[in-house]
């Protein structure tokens, strides 16, 4: 289990790169890479030679997240101005522009079947679900207010939703918030189930294990990565090793490893059997905002504030 650096693109964007995802391969082309940056552009890369395929403009303020449909045909990008732009990957034709004012947009993810797009709604303390056929808002999963709090109470603002993740079976959604709590929802009933506690600082990234719909990984500013049993409400293990905020986490398709990107400028590879960091990549010179495993495995990509993109081989 190790990472081997393959290629890095310096100055891939004009500004900090904040988001990255793999666009799955289609019949006509292999998998692509999608990156979003503070420079208000979204770029599409061919991962074998890291050649720029296309630059999408049209966002104002920085692009904070990108998500790809499991089919690989469409993708979504979201920026600080709270718009989500859905577009055709190959033609860059706009399909829809989603807005659910006044909620902001942070992390997004398509469900495994590709019928729904879940969007972390920031200060609205909710996750918005969009139908991918009609692009209508179909549900708002709100985190219930703690009881006994007046609606005007300031602490309610702490449930600021930053991250969202679908379970691999598509039945659960977990969302992480600024105060460190993770909320789990039943999607079919659109119902809040429970909180997962353990973090007390912002949870910026969440991912379910691709092989086990119960296992959830969370990355938090408290420098820890937690592994939860999302159904049993229990913290399986906490993994420490980063020197600063953990900004991004992704699980390998085989479920045996996770990778994290941190403000401490490293990308770490964690062995889930050992529950320990196996490797620490130090090629970035600034905070690493995004890490992502290729859905088919074998490749990992990371993006950073240093404007670069790095590709690794995972074996």
């Amino acid at each position: 289990m190790k990472f081997a650096g393959l290629k890095s693109v310096e100055n891939a964007h004009e500004e900090s790169v904040w988001a990255v995802t793999w666009v799955p391969a289609t019949e006509t082309r292999p998998a692509l890479l999608l990156t979003g940056s503070l420079d208000e552009t979204v770029k599409l890369w061919r991962p074998d030679d890291m050649q720029l395929e296309r630059t999408n403009t049209g966002h104002c303020l920085g692009v904070v997240s990108v998500a790809a449909h499991p089919s690989g045909i469409i993708a979504a990008s979201a920026s600080l101005d709270s718009f989500v732009r859905v577009f055709d990957v190959d033609t860059n034709a706009s399909i829809a522009t989603l807005e659910a004012s006044p909620s902001e947009v942070w992390q997004m993810q398509f469900d495994p079947k590709g019928t729904t797009l879940a969007v972390a709604g920031g200060g609205s303390a909710s996750v918005k679900l969009w139908d991918t056929a009609t692009w209508n808002l179909i549900a708002t999963l709100s985190i219930p207010r703690p009881e006994g709090l007046k609606p005007t109470d300031k602490s309610s603002s702490k449930k600021f939703v930053l991250s969202v993740a679908w379970s691999p079976d598509g039945r659960r959604i977990a969302c992480g918030s600024m105060d460190g709590t993770i909320s789990v929802f039943d999607v079919t009933r659109a119902k809040f189930l429970h909180h997962l506690e353990g973090h007390f600082m912002p949870v910026r990234s969440l991912v379910y294990s691709p092989v086990d719909p119960r296992v959830l990984f969370s990355a938090s500013d408290d420098t820890h990565v937690h592994m939860y049993d999302a159904e049993g409400k229990s913290l399986v293990t906490a993994m420490s090793g980063h020197a600063s905020w953990v900004l991004s986490v992704d699980a390998s398709p085989d479920g045996a490893a996770i990778t994290t990107g941190s403000s401490d400028r490293t990308v770490k590879l964690w062995d889930l059997n050992m529950r320990a960091a196996m490797q620490s990549m130090t090629n970035h010179t600034d905070q690493v905002w995004g890490v992502s495993f290729r859905p088919l495995g074998g490749r990992v990509v990371s993006v950073s504030d240093d404007k670069s993109i790095s590709l690794y081989e995972y074996s």
Partner: peptide, 22 residues
């Protein structure tokens, strides 16, 4: 374009203030 953004930002804030977020 910048002004449009600014308007958006402010109207967002204004909407959010209805929710007592800040």
């Amino acid at each position: 374009a910048e002004l449009e953004n600014a308007v958006r930002v402010f109207s967002h804030l204004s909407a959010a203030s209805n929710l007592h977020l800040h």
